[in-house]
C-alpha cells in the first residue's frame, strides 16, 4: 500500500503537450502510472503517447474520471489551473512547476483549505509509490518498493537517500516531494499524519534542508501525535546566512531556518538526525532492529 497514489489512481497530466509534459508523460506511462487524460487549453482532441487531451480539467474529470493531476504548466498559469482543477473535484494535485509566485501559492493554499484536496509543491519533484505509479519527474530507477515512507523538500536529495536505502534492502512505501518553496501547499506535519495512518509504512524518513520552520513545526507533531518512528536528515549546515541556495525557500535568515534549530527541535521530539545522507541508513536499521 501507500499514501495518496497507487497503480489504480486515475491520473491527469496538465500541460501535457509541452516539451516537458510530453517527455514526462512517456516516463510516467512506462513506469506503470494509470494516466487517463491530459489537458492543454486549446489542444483538446489531440493525443500524447496515446493519452487523450482535453481543453479543461472539468472535461477530463467528466469524461475520463481523472482523480489526481500533475502540473507541467507555466508558473503564471498555475493559480488559475489550480482553482479550475480543485473545482473539477480532483483529490490530489502535484505542482512540479518551479518559480510559482509566492502570493499565488498563498492564494491557492487558501482556496484549497477546507476543500477535499491535497496539493504538493510548488517545485515538487513529484510523488512515487515504487513499483506502482509516479506523478512528477522522479526517476523510477532510484526507488524500490518497501515499507519506508520518505518525505523530501528536494528531488535530488530524495534520490540520493532512497538509493542508499534501497542498496541496504530498505525500499519505500511512497516517496513524497513537498517542494522547497517558502510556502509549500502541504506542511510536513500533514504528510507525516498520512504516513502514520498507512498500514504499510513502518517508519518515516524526513529529508529536510535549511530555511523556514517546517521541521520545527513537524517536530511538535511527532512528539505529541506520531506513533511510528521517524528518522531525519537536514542538509545545509555549511550554508552561509542570507544566501538563497537554489531553492526559493532554502535561506537562513538570522537564527531562523538553520540546521541547528531544526536538529535540536527534532532531537527534543526524540527523532534521531543523521549527520550525513548515508547515516540515514544506519539510523533506520537501528530503529527497525
Amino acid at each position: 500500500m501507500s499514501i495518496l497514489l497507487n497503480r489504480e489512481t486515475r491520473v491527469l497530466v496538465q500541460g501535457i503537450t509541452g516539451r516537458v509534459g510530453q517527455a514526462q508523460t512517456k516516463w510516467m506511462l512506462e513506469y506503470g502510472t494509470n494516466i487517463v487524460a491530459g489537458v492543454t487549453p486549446g489542444k483538446g482532441g489531440e493525443e500524447v503517447a496515446g493519452v487523450p487531451v482535453y481543453n479543461s480539467a472539468a472535461q477530463a474529470v467528466a469524461e475520463r474520471g481523472a482523480e489526481a493531476s500533475v502540473f507541467f504548466v507555466p508558473p503564471a498559469a498555475v493559480k488559475d489551473a489550480s482553482r479550475e482543477t480543485i473545482d473539477a473535484g480532483v483529490r490530489l494535485i502535484v505542482v512540479v512547476t518551479e518559480h510559482v509566485p509566492v502570493h499565488d501559492a498563498m492564494e491557492i493554499k487558501a482556496y484549497a483549505s477546507g476543500r477535499d484536496v491535497q496539493l504538493l509543491g510548488p517545485t515538487s519533484p513529484g510523488i512515487i509509490t515504487p513499483g506502482e505509479a509516479k506523478m512528477g519527474i522522479m526517476p523510477g530507477n532510484m526507488f524500490q518498493p518497501g515499507r519506508i515512507g520518505a518525505i523530501s523538500r528536494s528531488g535530488t536529495l530524495a534520490y540520493e537517500i532512497c538509493v542508499d536505502l534501497a542498496a541496504a534492502g530498505l525500499g519505500q512505501s511512497t516517496a513524497v516531494g513537498m517542494g522547497a518553496d517558502p510556502v509549500p501547499f502541504t506542511n510536513l506535519s500533514e504528510l507525516l499524519r498520512l504516513f502514520d495512518a498507512d498500514p504499510d509504512t513502518d517508519l518515516v524518513v524526513i529529508i529536510g534542508e535549511v530555511g523556514g520552520r517546517q521541521e520545527e513545526h513537524a517536530a511538535r507533531f511527532i512528539a505529541s501525535q506520531m506513533t511510528k518512528p521517524v528518522v531525519a536528515y537536514i542538509a545545509g549546515y555549511s550554508v552561509p546566512e542570507g544566501k538563497r541556495m537554489g531553492h526559493a525557500g532554502a535561506i537562513v535568515q538570522g537564527n531562523m531556518g538553520t540546521t541547528k534549530s531544526k536538529i535540536s527541535a527534532f532531537q527534543e521530539a526524540g527523532v534521531e538526525v543523521a549527520e550525513y545522507p548515508l547515516d540515514v541508513v544506519k539510523l533506520v536499521q537501528n530503529k527497525l532492529g
Binding site: 528536494s154 528531488g155 534520490y159 534542508e209 542538509a235 537554489g246 550525513y276
Partner: peptide, 9 residues
C-alpha cells in the same frame, strides 16, 4: 540539484 548541492557542501 539544490538539496544535493547543499549536502555535498
Amino acid at each position: 540539484g539544490a538539496g544535493l548541492g547543499m549536502a555535498t557542501m
